[in-house]
Design a protein around this nucleic acid. Structure first.
Length: 552
RNA sequence: GCGGGACUGGUCUAGUCUGGUCUAGGACGUCAGCCUCCCAAGCUGGAGAUCCCGGGUUCAAAUCCCGGGUCCCGCACCA
């Protein structure tokens, strides 16, 4: 049994996650997060908040999943998530129809209908790369879930394929909540939906999953003073390495990566550094991590540069757990165009600049007399002003009909469309990576050594024996910890060893045991999940002791 | 979607080839009680499976046949 299988098995037995809708035969691509899965993903989410949201004062919102057609039309998703799938009618292999055509040297518009593509493929006798057959059927495959909003027919909507769009469309209000300041970070933890053709490998490819995203809006021209969470070297498999056909990443500091132009944006680099930090905190060794640059053809339609943060898992290979994308001004531009709303931001200039301005004042009566045919066109703005005077359709206009007013305008702001830098995590994959590296065997027993800081403020409380005097006292300790905001798993069944084993598998960092001595002097034993060592502590110091532990 | 394999209590599995002895056996887990002063111990008792679903063949189906579902592995797909 491979390690991954053992981890998945543990997940099944202990109820971290399992396939949903089992009683109806199941539905591929949907999973339930069980009680321990919720504890773990909550822990990961709050760690993400600690690293990616709080320190920079980013905002966090929770926007709807159901998204109107127009929003995703403007964002480009409607067109880009709809793949024309060409199926070979002989071997039934499927390909992107437009890829087949462009490989054969045939140009076809991306917006061509499936029928047109089918016709083009068959008329040109393009062969199936697999079997050589030349009969194609082309159908669109929509990888977004569509739905109707309300009872009306032309109110199509989709389940969001990313949480990001819910942030972009609220940009103006968010900016005013941020009192107009850039950079502005807005985060969102929520569900994303993608109608995958074939979901696979347990929770690695799901149709509904959890995302942790930040959209950082920046002024691309602004000087950046970026927080540097650490000076750990980033393992980067960048374009130059990839196109040279190599697979060994460069190990660069953030400064080096930026200086060499490998990472094109300082914020993007900072997020990569934070991402490395997050994964290290989840217990993934640095040497099992890398940032792989997405090449031009692999990138999403909105991206100017993307690095996938990947984790190496033996049985899977390099697994993408995050995408860090420099989205430029694509998103806001698209929504400005689509909605007709102004999403530009006025940025204060460091020092105001004076711009000399020349204004033409026409003497209307003279203009009408001199140019009876074209005066209306001239006044409508069809003229140009250069050092030689006013030109209309390239011909100088008689100087008698106008005067030039020279003024100086003081400009204090710049109008910009902010650029967006986005770190985006798949929560289920983070959980899997965390579990994979936390999974340990100790004396033939399973211990989920989830690093400190992930499962926080959770403790087990046990009476040493299931005797009333001990169980009652243990319940009191439980109450006390609950009141201090600590989640308690209480258990008095079976033997003490069995109970320790159960919480070890769940990754609960410490177990507190009440024995006879506790009844006499009010002390309890505190057992460490990883070392199984116990220390004796007074009951009333438990909370402060737990807070002092590195586990917390 | 295609090809291959699999599917029996919560988990792992015996039984399937060669239909009847299966009212489906075991182990682990789980629950209750007893015992137990620290790591899945022991004892007693209990619950838990229309054998993935639907149809067919047969006197008789977990077992054979057909269709479907889900999972795993390859291929393709992953904006």
């Amino acid at each position: 049994m491979s390690k991954l299988d053992e981890v998945l098995n543990l997940a099944k037995i202990k109820g971290y996650f399992w396939p949903a809708y089992d009683v109806y035969g199941g539905s591929s691509g949907f999973y339930v997060l069980g009680p321990y899965g919720v504890i773990l993903t909550n822990g990961i989410t709050s760690l993400w908040r600690q690293l990616f949201v709080r320190p920079m004062g980013f905002l966090e919102i929770d926007a709807p999943s159901v998204t109107p057609y127009k929003v995703l039309k403007s964002s480009g998703h409607v067109d880009n998530f709809k793949d024309p799938m060409a199926e070979c009618s002989n071997c039934h292999n499927k390909y992107r129809a437009d890829n087949l055509l462009s490989e054969a040297g045939k140009e076809i518009s991306e917006s061509a209908s499936p029928e047109a593509m089918q016709l083009a493929l068959n008329d040109d006798h393009i062969r199936c790369p697999n079997c050589g057959f030349t009969n194609w059927v082309v159908k669109p495959f929509m990888t977004m879930f569509s739905t109707n909003i309300g009872p009306y027919e032309n109110s199509e909507g989709f389940l969001r394929p990313e949480t990001a769009q819910g942030i972009f469309v609220e940009f103006q209000r968010l900016l005013s909540l941020n009192r107009g300041k850039l950079p502005m970070g807005v985060s969102q933890a929520g569900r994303g939906f993608r109608n995958e053709i074939s979901p696979r490998q347990s929770i690695i490819r799901l149709r509904e999953f959890h995302m942790l995203e930040v959209e950082l809006f920046i002024d691309p021209a602004a000087k950046v003073s970026v927080i540097r969470p650490s000076e750990k070297r980033l393992p980067i498999l960048h374009e130059a390495i990839l196109s040279a056909g190599r697979a060994e990443p460069d190990h660069l500091t953030l400064v080096e990566a930026l200086d060499k132009g490998i990472v094109k944006n300082e914020w993007l680099g900072m997020f990569m550094q934070l991402s490395l930090e997050l994964l290290c905190n989840l217990g993934v060794p640095v040497e099992r991590q890398r940032f792989r640059e997405k090449l031009k053809g692999e990138r999403a339609h909105y991206s100017a540069q993307t690095f996938d943060h990947e984790v190496f898992i033996e049985e899977v290979g390099w697994l993408e757990v995050a995408g860090h994308a420099y989205r430029t001004d694509y998103d806001l531009k698209s929504h400005m165009k689509g909605s007709g709303q102004d999403m530009t931001v006025s940025v204060d200039l460091e020092s105001p600049i004076s711009v000399p301005k020349k204004k033409v004042n026409f003497r209307i009566d003279a203009l009408k007399l001199r140019y009876p045919e074209s005066w209306q066109g001239i006044l409508a703005g069809g003229y140009r002003l250069d050092e030689n005077g006013v030109l209309f359709n390239g011909t100088p206009i008689d100087r008698d009909v106008y005067t030039i007013n020279e003024t100086v305008e003081v400009v204090k702001v710049r109008k910009i469309i902010p650029h967006v830098v986005e770190p985006s995590f798949g929560l289920e994959r983070l959980m899997l990576a965390c579990m994979y590296f936390a999974y340990q065997k100790k004396d033939d027993r399973i211990v989920l050594s989830v690093p400190g800081g992930v499962i926080k403020r959770v403790a087990a409380v046990f009476p040493l024996l299931s005797k009333p005097e001990l169980t009652l006292r243990a319940q009191e300790v439980r109450e006390r910890l609950l009141k201090a905001g600590i989640d308690v798993i209480y258990d008095d069944s079976g033997s003490i060893g069995r109970r320790y084993a159960r919480v070890d598998e769940a990754g609960v960092p410490i177990a507190i045991t009440i024995d006879h001595q506790s009844l006499e002097d009010g002390t309890v034993t505190v057992r460490n999940r990883d070392t199984w060592e116990q220390v004796r502590k007074p009951e009333d110091q438990l909370v402060s002791f737990m807070e002092s532990l590195s586990l917390y």
